[in-house]
């Protein structure tokens, strides 16, 4: 009897360990653990703090109701940072995607150098939003930086990039566009998936390069465009390093990106509760924009299974 039972538990254990669900969960455990500890708990905590006047300095968190959210609407800098961030996203994301698509398209040619070029173009994305790159950018666009040296040598006047509130955002946008590597790789993969037969058929019908690009490449690539658009929009909303390192939000808060203002409120001005409220507001904005993109996607994303 006893033996039979232990054999049965042994079998059960064996089955349990080899069950696909168990294996899956074991492998996913590091992620789940990390997600709960470093994403979910902080997020829930920040949600609670959004309704308090929590500050890092005093460490007291008294319930304040919706006060933080009401204060947001009266905060000039907040409204400005929202405007600046929207402008940043609206300009940088399309520019980045167009540029990434262009380079990816050029690199579909059959040449041995393609892999090398792809790696080269990917490097700026590898160094990513690092402080070092931002510092380089700051030097490039400084009053006596390389860009102004070149302009001067060409007989053009120098430009006061970071002193002019209309221009200051431009170098930051260029920096993000310059890091087009990851979108490019995804586009390149998508381009490879488009059957060559389509192009051959079009060629026989006498379509020129532009027609082939707009009638075949773009529609076939549109699901990937959608993916890149969503991902890049979300990451653009969270841009921080450039503004923090290069301009500190100036002049006249014209580069006060949303994430930088959240940081300032949380760590510089000691209003953690207020900063949490700002973060949740940004979540709503980003959620809404992503939703809009998805809702409109049925008008422009081409799906072969629908045809």
């Amino acid at each position: 009897m006893e033996q039979k039972k232990s054999v049965r538990t042994g079998k059960w254990l064996y089955k349990f360990i080899n069950n696909e669900n168990t294996v899956g969960h074991v492998f996913a455990f590091p992620f789940i653990f990390g997600f709960i500890c470093f994403s979910m708990i902080p997020m829930l905590t920040s949600f609670r703090y959004a309704f308090t006047d929590y500050s890092l300095g005093t460490k007291t968190a008294e319930f304040a109701g919706l006060k933080n959210f009401i204060m947001l609407l009266q905060d000039e800098v907040f409204l400005k940072s929202l405007k600046v961030t929207l402008r940043y996203v609206l300009i940088s994301v399309p520019m980045k995607l167009i540029f990434a698509l262009l380079v990816a398209f050029l690199l579909t040619r059959k040449s041995k150098m393609v892999t090398l070029y792809r790696s080269l173009y990917y490097i700026p994305s590898l160094v990513g939003g690092s402080v070092a790159v931002a510092l380089v950018w700051k030097q490039l666009f400084a009053r006596k930086g390389l860009i102004n040296m070149i302009l001067k040598a060409q007989g053009l006047g120098t430009v006061n990039w970071f002193g002019d509130q209309k221009l200051a955002l431009l170098p930051l946008i260029l920096m993000s566009v310059w890091q087009f590597g990851s979108s490019m790789i995804i586009f390149a993969a998508g381009l490879k998936e488009i059957p060559v037969t389509y192009y051959e058929a079009a060629q026989i019908d006498g379509a020129n390069g532009f027609q082939r690009f707009f009638k075949i490449t773009l529609p076939c690539l549109s699901p990937i465009v959608l993916y890149n658009l969503v991902m890049q929009t979300i990451s653009a909303f969270m841009a921080f390093t450039q503004a923090f390192i290069i301009t500190e939000g100036g002049p006249n808060n014209s580069t006060m990106l949303y994430a930088l203002y959240v940081y300032n409120q949380a760590f510089k001005y000691n209003n953690m509760g207020y900063a949490c409220a700002m973060s949740w507001f940004m979540l709503l904005v980003m959620g809404a924009i992503t939703l809009i993109i998805f809702k409109t996607s049925k008008f422009w994303v081409f799906n072969e299974s629908d045809q």
């Binding site: 700051k138 970071f162 002193g163 290069i246 301009t247 500190e248 100036g250 002049p251």
Partner: peptide, 8 residues
Amino acid sequence: PDAGAEAE
């Protein structure tokens, strides 16, 4: 100095 120069 304006804000841009000041940041330097």
